[in-house]
Each structure stands twice: as structure tokens, then as C-alpha cells.
Write a protein that binds this DNA or RNA. Structure first.
Length: 105
DNA sequence: TATATGACGGACG
DNA sequence: GCGTCCGCCATAT
């Protein structure tokens, strides 16, 4: 058996990869889909460990408020915003309209 | 074993 | 709508 850490990361990444292009999801929802309701923080921790060049569309993951959780002005925040807009997800005032782009299985 | 931390979420005033 | 506090899970030290 691999460590829980590896399995949970794999499971979380799997869910994130399942998000279709042009849609976004929240940490809490992902945690729920991964079988860990309430472990939103754990999702953030897993995404933080993602290596560059991973095929995981981590930019489609935002917080329940529809905002990018990364520090404003940081490289990650910039990259995420650019990628979302490139996929057709409109980011107004640093916020995303979950009513329209929120992905639900 | 205990304490602090984190790309969070929800409740409360 | 905004700022604050507490709870959740796993990891790191």
C-alpha cells in the first residue's frame, strides 16, 4: 500500500483532471468528489505539490467565493487567470461566475 | 505526542 | 457586502 498522501493526491488530481475545459470547480466540491468532504484545505495542499508540466488543469480550481486563492500579483495567480480566460471563462474583478462556469458532475 | 501551518468553508456580527 | 472567528483534514517540525 502506498502512503495515504500519494493516494489522496492521485485521487484529487484525478478529480481535477475530470473538469471539462471552460468549466471551473471549487476546493470544497473537489474534496467532496474525492471522498473527503470538508477537506478543502487538503485539496489546496495537494495542488501546491503539483510539479510544473503536470497535466493537471489546476487553474480550473478556485475557492467557493469564485476567486483565485493564490496571492494577487503572484505568478501563479496571473497564469491561472490567463488560462481561464483562454478557455472562455470570464474573470470579472478577479472573480468567476460559478453560476455559469461552475462544473457539476 | 503536541503545536503550527495551509492555493478552504461556513457561520456570525 | 465585509471583516472576524471557528472547524475541517493532512502534513511538517
Amino acid at each position: 500500500m502506498a502512503s495515504n498522501r500519494t493516494e489522496l493526491n492521485q485521487r484529487i488530481w484525478q478529480v481535477v483532471t475530470s473538469i471539462p475545459e471552460g468549466k471551473v470547480s471549487t476546493y470544497g466540491d473537489i474534496a467532496r468528489f474525492a471522498g473527503l468532504p470538508g477537506a478543502a484545505r487538503r485539496v489546496g495542499y495537494a495542488l501546491r505539490q503539483l510539479p510544473e508540466g503536470s497535466k493537471v488543469p489546476w487553474h480550473r480550481v478556485i475557492n467557493a467565493q469564485g476567486c483565485i486563492s493564490l496571492p494577487a500579483g503572484s505568478e501563479g495567480e496571473y497564469t491561472q487567470r490567463e488560462r481561464l480566460e483562454a478557455e472562455g471563462v470570464r474573470v470579472c474583478g478577479g472573480k468567476v461566475a460559478l453560476r455559469e462556469f461552475g462544473w457539476q458532475p
